[in-house]
């Protein structure tokens, strides 16, 4: 049973990353109509920024948790201002191709300097060790990742669904021209939205750094799984992205316990099943 709980925990952690990343993809898609292929690369950048902050600037994990998303978010906003904004009105696929190119550039540059091996990032002192829950041994850091991700996901949901700013955002998603007529600076909102989505990816990167090590290709394969998550859950609903992300992480964890050979493929297989049964995705509208 210990092993089952351990795999469930791993599943929850992966689920946190799926949720944070698919959430960002959904928010960005809503405003920019772009599937951000660079999301995985920016997630990786988040981890690297945390690594640089610690090893070059002596800035600890807690500050990295705040600073890395901001730094990567600014980088993302520069990308949006200099490149992505020129794609408005073009076919969706150009956004995919452009961000794929950006992902190749970012990953290639990091691979040149850091190869393909992983760099260690120590767990902060406050979160070291573990506690015995009676039925299992819980490493504190892993528990922290799950709870913190959940809080961030719910905060993002709250921001978008319940605040005035979120209302502008949702309105601009539906009809940007009309929202502009009300005197709201939609292009700036688009830039900030991209920054927010990218910041969430970078935050996931920082959280994963002590668990998965810091590697240039850490986001490359992850983003494809997240795409499958997005296909399953649909991008229409924020809460849908969060729930699908966590649920698929848990299913993957259970697969690792019961049938490890399929743990890499289970999300893709589920995607196929969902497409066969309900082609629009679990929460999605037809697209």
């Amino acid at each position: 049973m210990q092993a089952l709980y351990a795999q469930l925990l791993v599943g929850l952690i992966n689920g946190s990353f799926y949720a944070l990343l698919s959430l960002g993809l959904a928010v960005i898609f809503g405003m920019l109509n772009i599937i951000n292929f660079a999301h995985g690369a920016l997630y990786m950048m988040g981890a690297f920024v945390a690594y640089f902050l610690l090893n070059l600037g002596g800035i600890n994990y807690w500050w990295a948790l705040l600073l890395a998303p901001i730094i990567v978010g600014i980088f993302g906003m520069i990308l949006e201002r200099t490149m992505l904004q020129w794609l408005t009105g073009l076919d969706h696929l150009y956004g995919l191709l452009l961000t794929f190119g950006i992902a190749l550039i970012v990953q290639g540059v990091f691979q040149n300097y850091f190869g393909s091996s992983g760099l260690p990032y120590a767990i902060p002192d406050q979160l070291k060790g573990g506690m015995n829950l009676g039925f299992m041994f819980l490493p504190v850091y892993r528990g922290w990742v799950v709870i913190f991700s959940l809080v961030v996901c719910l905060a993002t949901w709250f921001l978008i669904e319940k605040t005035r700013l979120g209302a502008y955002l949702r309105a601009a998603t539906e009809n940007p021209t009309l929202v502009r007529a009300f005197g709201i600076n939609v292009p700036r909102m688009i830039t900030l939205t991209y920054g927010l989505g990218v910041g969430l990816a970078a935050l996931a990167g920082v959280l994963s750094a002590p668990i998965n090590q810091v590697r240039p290709l850490m986001g490359a394969d992850l983003i494809i799984v997240v795409f499958a998550v997005v296909v399953i859950g649909g991008m229409g609903s924020i809460m849908g992205s969060i729930i699908t992300g966590f649920a698929l992480g848990v299913i993957e964890g259970l697969t690792k316990y019961f049938y490890p050979e399929a743990s890499n493929t289970v999300v893709f297989v589920l995607m196929v099943l969902v497409l066969l049964v309900k082609p629009t995705g679990l929460t999605g509208r037809a697209a």
Partner: peptide
Amino acid sequence: TVIQGSIFVICVL
């Protein structure tokens, strides 16, 4: 890889 990525970006833009 970096050059390929750059070609993607240049072509699309």
